[in-house]
Structure formats: C-alpha cells, structure tokens
Amino acid sequence: MQKRLAAAAAAALALGIASTAHGADVEPQIERQHWSFYGIFGAFDRAAEQRGFEVYKDVCANCHSLNLLAYRDLEEIGLSANEVKAVAAGVEVEDGPNDQGQMFERPGKPSDRFKAPFANDAAARVANNGALPPDLSLIVKAREGGPDYVYSILTGFKEAPAGFKMAEGMNYNTAFPGHQIAMPPPLSDGVVTYTDGTKATVPQMAHDVVTFLAWAANPELETRHRVGVKTIIFLVILTGLLYAIKRKVWADVH
C-alpha cells in the first residue's frame, strides 16, 4: 500500500515535471477556448480556416511572414486549384537569373512559398520600430498555451490600468508576458469583410485566424488523428490477443 502510494506520487511528480509551467513570470491571462481541432477526433473547421486565411492575407501578412507554407498547401483548407493559382498569381515573386544574368519579377506559382512582407529581418525591424514580427508558420506550437495564447493576445488589447508604466511605443496586452507588446492591436470590428458574409467581430476574426494558424502549424493533424484512432484500436485488439496467448501459455505454470 505504502509502495503504491509512493509510486503514484512519483508518477504524478514525473507528469508534473513534463508539463510544468515556467516559474514566477508575470502570469499572462489566457482564456481557454473551444477549438474544433482539440480531442482525439478533432478536425479543422473548413469555413473558419478559410475566413482565417482572409484575415491573415488582409491584416497579418502586412508584417508577418508565413515562410514554411506554399500556396499549393491552401488546397488543404478547401480552396480549389484555380483559386490557389489566383492567390499565387496575385503576388510578384523574384526569380532568376535569366539568360541575361539578371534577377526578375514574375507572378507567383502554386509551388512558391508564401511571399514575405519584408526582404529580411533587418528590413522588418526598420519598418517596425526595431521589433521583429515573428513568422507565423509555427506560432501556435511555439508559444506556451498554443491556440488559447494566440487568441488571448489578439483579444487582449486594453487600456493600461491606472499606475501601470508603459514604455515608449508599446501597447498594453493582458496575455503578453510583462503586459507590454510592440504590436499595435491588429484587429478591430469590420477591418476585414468576410466573403461568406459572417460578421467580422474581433473575437470572430481572432477565432478564425487562430484556426487558420493552428492548421498552418499542424497541417497533418486530421490525418494524424484518423490514423491514430485506427492504430490504437488495432493495437488494443492485438494486445488483447497477445494477452490471451500469454495466459494460455502460462496456464500450466500458475
């Protein structure tokens, strides 16, 4: 009994170690949201993904790159091959050198990676008061709290409370560690007009763009869940059979 309690305590500690929060920072306030892609049967809400892409394209893409995605990947969120071609062709991409030895601009192709808003990090900093807007391809996996955190950042811009000292050019945000973020509030009601007619409130846009970014960071999620459920069921059955064999073989020993 003592042994079991101690074992359970050790196991709990071990799990606690693996998922522990990081220490005594100014605690960001993160609200838990409901996400369609959570849980073992989770999948991405296509409509939200597509609206989220519109938000990214119209708002976020002005400062944030999405370097790890190619335009062809958009077919996974429900865009047709022609729509993808049109999105790609809407940007000018550098290519070359041509036969004259010069670099040239051409319309984008589906196989191209998403075009970054700035040529490099230094250029991005110059355009943003020295702050570097991070690439968003993995942002949902690269932050403690994941989708909830990104959502809370986007909806967490408020007036600084009385007595709170704000540094020059910073914005108060309830979710950002330290509560001062260089990014000005990117979303405001109606800043995007959704093609499907959904009302573009800040929480709606935040929800949609986080769904899109969660897909961008985990494009394999739906396949992973599907294959996972089948695999675990298969293994449970196989393990059951293996147990039956074990009991059979050991029957004469016990």
Partner: peptide, 16 residues
C-alpha cells in the same frame, strides 16, 4: 509471449 504482450501495452502508451 509475456514480452510480446508487454510490447503491445507499451506501444499503446507510446503511440497515444
């Protein structure tokens, strides 16, 4: 036979 069963259980945890 016992090790095979153990591997089955372990795989379920691992693959989960």
């Amino acid at each position: 036979v016992k090790d095979n069963f153990g591997i089955g259980v372990f795989l379920i945890v691992y693959l989960s």
